Lab assay of single mutants.
Amino acid sequence: MMAYMNPGPHYSVNALALSGPSVDLMHQAVPYPSAPRKQRRERTTFTRSQLEELEALFAKTQYPDVYAREEVALKINLPESRVQVWFKNRRAKCRQQRQQQKQQQQPPGGQAKARPAKRKAGTSPRPSTDVCPDPLGISDSYSPPLPGPSGSPTTAVATVSIWSPASESPLPEAQRAGLVASGPSLTSAPYAMTYAPASAFCSSPSAYGSPSSYFSGLDPYLSPMVPQLGGPALSPLSGPSVGPSLAQSPTSLSGQSYGAYSPVDSLEFKDPTGTWKFTYNPMDPLDYKDQSAWKFQIL
């Protein structure tokens, strides 16, 4: 009977010793046993002879290597770790002494450095960015050149030099007046198309007034536009458009034309069986010896 009264063996659950049927240790109110408190290391007290050895090595170098620390530790009968900690504390003490010396050398008012006064946003004049500046400075420094007289040679050079070769001289006033084509001369031969040399188009003023001019072949195509416009036809070669000034309004060009419109200028042929003959000019830059190549039959 006494065997049943004795408590059973101890069981360990999660490293906790349980005594038989008792489960009081598993209750929430019972805390787990805490780790033992780490003991504080005792402070090391250095003797005068030990301090002399350490100070002598510190005077040589503030960062001794492990071999120098072990050698000193053997002399003063201390572990190497204590020597390492002593050098660490000695360097910190040396830095603190240097900072105190710097503070003593500075004057009393030198510690508080005078800061520059901050400028207020409204006091300083700042350039306004509302208006974009002129990058080319046209509004201040540029002045347009004065327009020359209508009959000045410089204007003629600016007008005619675009179309004339570089080897030719500017046309005088008398020749510029001949550039304007007359109405009857352009409409006299509506079906004849003559190819003149390129030099005649640039230099010869008579080429624009003769039936064999460069633009005589364009007349049949330009004249039928007159009834559609409801007024006189516009002429690209009329009046002052080739003269001194090219800047004319469309209203000033509306009254200039080749001449009176005639039914002869239409595109319809009077004789459907007729042929169109292209007159060959020996001055043509295209060297075609066979003139029969310039004739064709309209079917």
Rank of each mutant, 00 (worst) to 15 (best):
T279Y: 11
L299K: 00
A158I: 11
P220Y: 15
R98Y: 03
A35N: 06
L51A: 14
Y63P: 14
S235K: 12
S206M: 10
R126E: 01
P205A: 10
K277I: 12
D65P: 08
P170D: 04
A166W: 12
S266G: 05
R91T: 13
E53N: 06
E42F: 07
A166S: 07
N6H: 11
E55T: 07
Y4L: 05
T47S: 06
E173K: 14
T275N: 00
C132E: 09
Y258H: 02
S81V: 01
S210R: 12
Y288N: 09
S128M: 07
S19Q: 04
S235V: 15
T61C: 08
P21S: 05
P272Q: 02
Y261V: 01
G243I: 12
Q105C: 10
W86N: 14
G109I: 04
A29V: 12
M283C: 06
M5N: 02
E55C: 09
L246K: 08
K38E: 12
L51Y: 08
R98S: 06
V226G: 00
P220W: 11
S34L: 09
S143M: 07
Y258A: 05
Y214C: 04
D290V: 13
D140Q: 08
Y191V: 02
Y11H: 00
L246V: 04
G255L: 12
A189Q: 04
Y191D: 00
A158V: 14
G122P: 07
A68L: 05
P172K: 10
P285H: 03
L57D: 15
R115A: 01
R119V: 03
S213A: 12
F269L: 02
S19D: 02
L78V: 10
P285I: 12
R119D: 00
G243K: 11
K60G: 10
A196H: 07
A207Y: 14
A158P: 01
Y142S: 09
L57E: 09
K295N: 00
Q256N: 05
M225N: 01
Q175E: 03
Q248W: 15
K295E: 05
S262D: 04
D65K: 15
L57Q: 06
D271V: 15
S252M: 09
P220L: 11
P285V: 06
V66Q: 12
S81R: 06
L18C: 01
A192E: 01
S141Y: 07
P250A: 08
A196N: 02
T275L: 06
E168P: 13
R41H: 14
L57Y: 13
S81P: 05
P172F: 13
P285R: 14
E71D: 09
S204W: 15
F269K: 01
L179F: 07
S203V: 13
L146F: 07
P145Q: 02
L16P: 00
L253D: 01
S213W: 14
N89S: 15
V83Y: 15
P250Q: 08
E168D: 05
Y208F: 08
A174T: 02
